[in-house]
Design a binder for these strands. Structure first.
Lengths: 309, 309
DNA sequence: TTTCCTTACGCCTATCGTAAGCATA
DNA sequence: TATGCTTACGATAGGCGTAAGGAAA
C-alpha cells in the first residue's frame, strides 16, 4: 500500500554498486536481507527493477526510471526531517508578525532587517492591523508576534483564555506638528499653554484609541483644550493636513522618518512624561520555537531604536 | 535512520483530521497504533509535531512545516510507483534510437511522428551513427533500437555474446542521379549499359560499406564498370557533386525528399532486383518494455513507407 | 572451483487489536 | 460523566543473521 523507504534505500544502494555484497556492506547489512528488501520492493511495484544473474546485476528500464524517482524520494525524506528539526529549533519556518501603521515608520523596518540578517531561515509574514485586531489575532493564533500599542488599562490582556504578554520596545516623545509658516514656529519649541483653542487634527477611534487617550492626558494635565477639527487614521494623512493649514497635531517622534516638506516637528515645553509606547506582544506560554530568539532580537533592536531617536 | 512512510502517512491523516479516531478509521486502524506511529515519528524527528490534550489536537509549528514536506513526500512515493509501473508496461520511459544519416530522409521522421502520437509517454533519444556503430552500441546497451543497413553477410550479427535481431523496414530502389543538362537525361530512363566508363561518385568506406557492395553488385551483373571519381559520406553531398557535374551517382529513392535543384533522379533500365534495405535492429531477447509496441509501430510505418514510394 | 545472488531456518523485534488508564470539558 | 488520547499486554507478522543452495564464469 505504501512504499517502504528502507527498501527504496536498499534498492538505490544496489543500483549504485551493482553488487549486493558491497551495497549490503554500505548499509551495515548482510546481502541476504538486502536481497529480500529489493524483492519485496519489486513485488510491491509489480515489476523487476534489477536484472540479476549470479555474476552480474543490471538495471531494467523500469529500474533505471525508478532509480531517479527513488533518489528524489530519499532526498525529500532527508529534507523533510531537516525542515522539522530546524523549525523546532527556531532556525526556520514562517512567523506571522502584525504591526500598526505607525510602527512601520520606525521600528518595523529595523526589526525586519535584523531578522533577515540574524535569522535568515525565518520566513516573515507581515500583516498590518490595529492593536485590538492584533490582540485578537494573537489569541486566535493567526499571528505569532505583534507590534502594537498598549491596551486601555481596563482591558484585560486575555482573549478566550489566552493571555497575551507584552514587552516595551520603544517609548517615543510626542512632537507638535505645525506648518513651517505658522507663527508659533519662530522659536525652536512651543509651550503647551499656547495650544489652547488651537485647531487640532486628532485620531479617529478606529486605530487611534491609544493616541486619543494620550492626547487627552497631555492636554488635561496642562489644562488646555484645543479644538478637534478633523479625525484621521494615519500619521502621514495627519501631516498632510497640517501642511495644508487645516490644524496642528501631536505625532510620535518616529514621524520624522516621513520627512514631510513644509511641516515642522517641535518638542513641547514643558516636557511631559507622556510617551507613546510601542510594544511587542505574543501569546503567553507560546511554544513557537523561534519566539525566544525573536524576542531577544527585538529587544536588542529597542536599544538601537533609543539610541537613534 | 530513515523516515518511515507509514508513520508519515499516519501523521498526515491525523494532521488533516485533527482527530486520532477519525484518522485511524480513514486508515483502517484503531487509534492506538496510530498514536504510537505519530509518537515514533516525533521521536525520530526529535520534536513534537502535534499538540494534544485529551480534548483537542493541534499542529505545532514544526508539525505545520513538516506537514507540507510530508504531503510532498507521499505524493513523490505514489509518483515513483506510477513511473516504475508505466515504464515496465512500456507506456513511458526513455528509448535510445540510432539512425543512419540516410534514414533521416525518409523513414525516421515518419517513425518519430508515429511514436509521438501513438506512444506519447516514450522519451525518444536520437543518435546518428553508421550501421557498424549502431550494432556495437546495441550490444553495449547504449542503444535500444537502430535504423540501419544490412551487415555484410559474413559478419555475424553478434557482439560479445549479444545477438542483434533485424527486421526489414523498407526496401528502396536505387535511382541514377545526374545533372538536368546531361545528355542521358533526355529520355525518362537510362540503360545500365550506358553507364560504362562514366565518372561516378561513390561511398567512402566509412559509413557507406553497404552501398559500396550494392553498387558493385549492380555494375558487375550488368557487366559495366564506371570510373569512381569521388567518395563521399552523405547523400546530400553526393547530389551536390552531381549538380556540379563532377559525376553521376546511384542514390536510394528516399533521396527524392532532398529535392535538389538541377539534379534529376531516373530509374534504371532494365530494373535490377537490388534494393537498398533499411532495417530495424534490436537486441535479441531484449526485455525493454516498450520494444514490442515500438516494433509493431515501426512495421506499420513500413507499410506506409512502401505505399508512399 | 569460485563467486555471489538466493532460500531456509531460528531468533528477535515491531506492530496490531483489545482493554484499561487518565486528563479535560 | 463522557470523550478521546495514551499505555499495558498478549499474539502475530516481519526482518535480521547464519548457513546452505544453485547458477554462471
Amino acid at each position: 500500500m505504501m512504499l517502504d523507504l528502507v527498501q527504496v534505500q536498499g534498492f538505490v544502494a544496489v543500483a549504485e554498486e551493482l553488487h549486493f555484497g558491497r551495497a549490503a556492506r554500505r548499509l551495515n547489512l548482510t546481502p541476504s536481507p538486502l536481497s529480500r528488501q529489493v524483492q519485496a520492493l519489486e513485488h510491491a511495484l509489480g515489476t523487476p527493477l534489477l536484472d540479476r544473474s549470479s555474476r552480474s546485476v543490471r538495471l531494467t528500464p523500469a529500474g533505471q526510471a525508478f532509480l531517479g524517482e527513488a533518489r528524489r524520494l530519499l532526498d525529500g525524506a532527508r529534507n523533510a526531517e531537516r525542515v522539522a528539526r530546524q523549525v523546532a529549533r527556531g532556525e526556520a519556518g514562517p512567523v506571522r508578525l502584525g504591526y500598526t501603521a505607525a510602527s512601520a515608520l520606525g521600528v518595523l523596518p529595523r526589526l525586519v532587517a535584523a531578522i533577515r540578517s540574524e535569522m535568515p531561515g525565518i520566513d516573515l509574514v507581515l500583516e498590518e492591523m490595529v492593536t485590538a485586531e492584533q490582540v485578537e489575532a494573537l489569541a486566535a493564533r493567526r499571528l505569532d508576534l505583534g507590534l502594537l500599542r498598549p491596551l486601555a488599562p481596563d482591558l484585560a490582556p486575555e482573549v478566550e483564555g489566552v493571555r497575551i504578554a507584552f514587552a516595551c520596545l520603544a517609548r517615543e516623545r510626542l512632537l507638535l506638528a505645525l506648518p513651517d509658516d505658522h507663527p508659533l514656529c519662530r522659536r525652536g519649541h512651543v509651550s503647551l499653554r499656547e495650544l489652547d483653542g488651537q485647531p487640532f487634527i486628532t485620531w479617529s477611534p478606529r486605530g487611534g484609541t491609544y493616541f486619543l487617550g494620550l492626547l487627552a492626558n497631555i492636554f488635561r494635565s496642562a489644562g488646555v483644550a484645543p479644538r478637534a477639527v478633523q479625525r484621521v487614521n494615519q500619521t502621514h494623512t495627519m501631516l498632510a493636513l497640517v501642511r495644508e493649514g487645516i490644524g496642528l497635531a501631536l505625532v510620535p517622534e518616529s514621524a520624522r522618518a516621513l520627512r514631510t516638506e513644509g511641516v515642522v516637528l517641535l518638542p513641547l515645553r514643558p516636557e511631559t512624561d507622556q510617551r507613546a509606547e510601542l510594544l511587542l506582544g505574543w501569546r503567553e506560554g507560546d511554544n513557537h520555537p523561534a519566539l525566544a530568539r525573536l524576542r531577544d532580537l527585538a529587544l536588542t533592536q529597542q536599544v538601537l531604536s533609543d539610541q537613534q531617536t
